[in-house]
Nucleic acid binder design. Sequence first.
DNA 1: TTCATTCATCGTATAAAAACGATTTAAACA
DNA 2: TGTTTAAATCGTTTTTATACGATGAATGAA
Lengths: 110, 110
Amino acid sequence: MAQHKKEAFGTKEQNLATFAKALSHPARIAILSQLAKRNECICGELVEVLPLAQSTVSQHLKELKIAGLIDGTIDGPRSCYCINWKAFEKFYNDFSSLFTKLKEANARCC
Amino acid sequence: MAQHKKEAFGTKEQNLATFAKALSHPARIAILSQLAKRNECICGELVEVLPLAQSTVSQHLKELKIAGLIDGTIDGPRSCYCINWKAFEKFYNDFSSLFTKLKEANARCC
DNA sequence: TTCATTCATCGTATAAAAACGATTTAAACA
DNA sequence: TGTTTAAATCGTTTTTATACGATGAATGAA
């Protein structure tokens, strides 16, 4: 009875929602901030900094990767992650467009 | 075993995550777009436009309201909703700051 | 080759989200 | 007062997310 109906909406809305969902957990915001702060972005360093188990951090990294916001490369026994700037910028621009559209309409709201 | 640990993160990260979560469903993006498009923002009009049951739309409206992104006023037997511009702008600015911060760090990523 | 390190994945448990129908509430109107 | 209309809430089901420990795979070092 609770089948999701996300497909019933437009592509633009779905893409924006996917982007927002990737950012919808403080752990993933923290991960992005850490990736931005460091030259090296090793999974283990994130585990040290975050109040979560290693497996949980790995799971969040996977979600960010699936969303396309980060890239991961294997570096020996370690994994190095970094922000996928191109994807992130695309999503950000789409979101900014929505924001601008909403803003313009603001004046005549009830 | 799966108690949420969102409280273990910073306030800034939590607030951003809450904002993103409110936008993390295409129905809620569509609702915001509709609110921006119309002079009147009656719940029933949204139900007509969206591919969802009335109770489900009401639920999404409630979430947007709890997140602070919209305001609702009772208009006779109807409910009139509009975007809470101030809150929306605050969140948007916070998000833009994060984006800028990430962007500056981009050059020295692995 | 063996062992330690690092991370991903699996299995599982709990919590939250999404969706709907049915019911309730509240206002407008006859 | 009773009836209609509109929307919120309730109860329920299904799906997804969050979190962890345990296991597995792959690399690097002994």
